[in-house]
Design a protein around this nucleic acid. Sequence first.
DNA 1: GATAATAATTGTCAATAATACAATTAATCA
DNA 2: TGATTAATTGTATTATTGACAATTATTATC
Lengths: 236, 236
Amino acid sequence: MHIKRYTHQNRLLLAVDCIIFGFDGTHLKLLLIKRGFEPQKGRWSLMGGFVTHDENPDHAAARILKQLTGLSDIYLEQLYAFGDPYRDPTERTVSIACFSLIDINKYEEQISHEYSAEWFPLKKLPSVIFDHKEMIEMAKEKLRYKAAFHPVLFELLPDKFTLPQLQSLYEDVYDAIIDKRNFSRKILSTGLVIKQKDKEKNGSKKGAYYYKLDKRKYQAKFDAFLHLIPNPNGLK
Amino acid sequence: MHIKRYTHQNRLLLAVDCIIFGFDGTHLKLLLIKRGFEPQKGRWSLMGGFVTHDENPDHAAARILKQLTGLSDIYLEQLYAFGDPYRDPTERTVSIACFSLIDINKYEEQISHEYSAEWFPLKKLPSVIFDHKEMIEMAKEKLRYKAAFHPVLFELLPDKFTLPQLQSLYEDVYDAIIDKRNFSRKILSTGLVIKQKDKEKNGSKKGAYYYKLDKRKYQAKFDAFLHLIPNPNGLK
DNA sequence: GATAATAATTGTCAATAATACAATTAATCA
DNA sequence: TGATTAATTGTATTATTGACAATTATTATC
């Protein structure tokens, strides 16, 4: 006899929720949506959705991200499966929190309007549904952890960026002031960025040279340990 | 009208599979069981089980670990949710791989016999069912990553251990030869270990002093970056 | 009881990386 | 032309890492 199903087991809903980070040049932000259905309709929420029968959780997260932002090939990473029995009062739902980093300039505002999506600075987040606050906290921590050793923050920047912009990003992520000289030395020593001939002229009178990410080296060095932030926890 | 369930959504089975590491003094090992039910009955497998209606995935993993080893308060960490639609041919099942580290001397052999469990050195693993090979590979990588910065490998050792034992463990995990002098300097400088008055006398004529983990400092420093292995990827 | 054998313990020096700190430069505006 | 603003660049000090070998404690052997 061939067994077709596991009997006497509990089936449940599996969802993914996306913690979507963006950087506006000054502050790290999170993209939240206004929930369009019950329960908790009208409250702020992470963008999420259910895992369907023909996709794995990573695919589901990518699909949902595309739904909201119009973007494909986004940096996406599984964070943690949240599954307290009553986290969603409607029905038992386990949700895999995924964190993603996007270039805030590229996403399609049009689409995100349909979801009443808004960017919130991390320090001014509204109250969110269910255990989404916990998910966000974990994602922040993970980002700080990851960015200390891997050049993942470049995912948040446009194709062309300046060193002061990059530094602002690091300073905002770590809530710290970083020495300009030491920072640029460290970044340049990674060999990850290529200096451009043109300058960005809005921020200052002198203007700052643009840089581009060397995508070849980025791929190659992503998993190496760059020690971009020597002691992330010691900072304040 | 109050909505009681999410309609038109696909419900599925959620499982956890445990990658259980142990250290026998020489080699890092994995605890596998002989699968007791169809499909793939009789083949080697990670210890796993379904997440029940009244527990979250972490609880499920702890429960399953206790089932097999008799141990509570084990180091456990979610790794990744494996969810390709046909990974289990019987029925759609998403499985959260969890990795755990236990003191190989403490687990209860009695209980594990019921599951026909056996310890396998990482380099001599048998073929395993489904995507368990992939889970194991990811767990190995995660362990190497984590242990490079956090003193997590102590979870694998008995209460009393010697520096040469500790070094063997690191050498096996990183498949590398580490300089004794530099290693002990680094370990002692963390302040995590307390020298005992007695010696272990089996391994050598001179005998090696026992050390114990300073659990207070271990708790406090676990999340700090200790740089125990300066450049884990550069090793060979 | 002296000697050989085994593995643990300990120290130094050179190279590298991290940190602290300030003067110069390029462009704009008054 | 001079003042202002922010970008760019350099050096000295300290801490950490990495390479390398001699000494010590004990047991086994002659």
